[in-house]
Amino acid sequence: MNTLMNVPKNGGLTRTTSDRQSNVPTFSSWIDEFFNRDWPAFSQNFNAGITLPKVNIRETADAYFVEMAVPGMKKSDFNIELDNKMLIISNETREEQETKEDNYTRREFGYSSFKRSFSLPETVEEDKIKAEYQDGILSLQLPKREEAKQKPPRNIKIS
Results as ranks from 00 to 15, higher is better:
Ser18Phe: 11
Ile31Ser: 04
Arg37Trp: 07
Trp30Cys: 03
Asn23Pro: 03
Arg37Ile: 04
Arg15Cys: 11
Asp19Met: 10
Gly11Ala: 05
Phe27Leu: 13
Val24Phe: 07
Val24Trp: 08
Ser28Arg: 04
Ser28Phe: 04
Arg20Asp: 15
Ser29Met: 05
Thr16Leu: 10
Arg15Tyr: 12
Ser29Tyr: 01
Phe35Pro: 01
Asp32Thr: 00
Phe27Gly: 01
Thr17His: 11
Asp19Phe: 10
Val24Asn: 10
Asp38Ile: 03
Asn23Ser: 14
Thr26Leu: 06
Gly12His: 01
Asn36Ser: 10
Asp38Ala: 02
Thr14Asn: 03
Pro25Leu: 12
Phe35Cys: 07
Phe34Arg: 01
Gly12Asn: 00
Arg20Asn: 15
Gly11Lys: 02
Lys9Cys: 04
Gly11Asp: 07
Val7Thr: 13
Thr26Pro: 06
Phe27Asn: 05
Ser29Ala: 12
Asn10Glu: 08
Asn36Ile: 00
Val7Tyr: 09
Arg20Ile: 15
Val24Ile: 15
Trp30Tyr: 11
Asn23His: 11
Leu13Ser: 05
Gln21Asn: 15
Lys9Glu: 13
Gly12Cys: 07
Thr16Trp: 03
Thr14Pro: 02
Phe35Asp: 04
Thr17Gln: 12
Thr17Cys: 14
Ile31Met: 09
Lys9Phe: 05
Arg15Gln: 13
Asn23Ala: 14
Asn10Phe: 02
Ser18Val: 14
Arg20Glu: 15
Arg37Ser: 05
Arg37Val: 01
Phe34Tyr: 13
Asp19Val: 06
Val24Met: 11
Thr26His: 04
Asp38Asn: 05
Val7Ala: 07
Asp32Phe: 01
Asp19Lys: 08
Ile31Asp: 04
Glu33Val: 00
Asn23Glu: 15
Trp30Leu: 15
Ser28His: 09
Ser29Lys: 01
Leu13Trp: 06
Thr14Leu: 05
Lys9Tyr: 08
Phe34Trp: 10
Asn10Tyr: 05
Phe27Val: 08
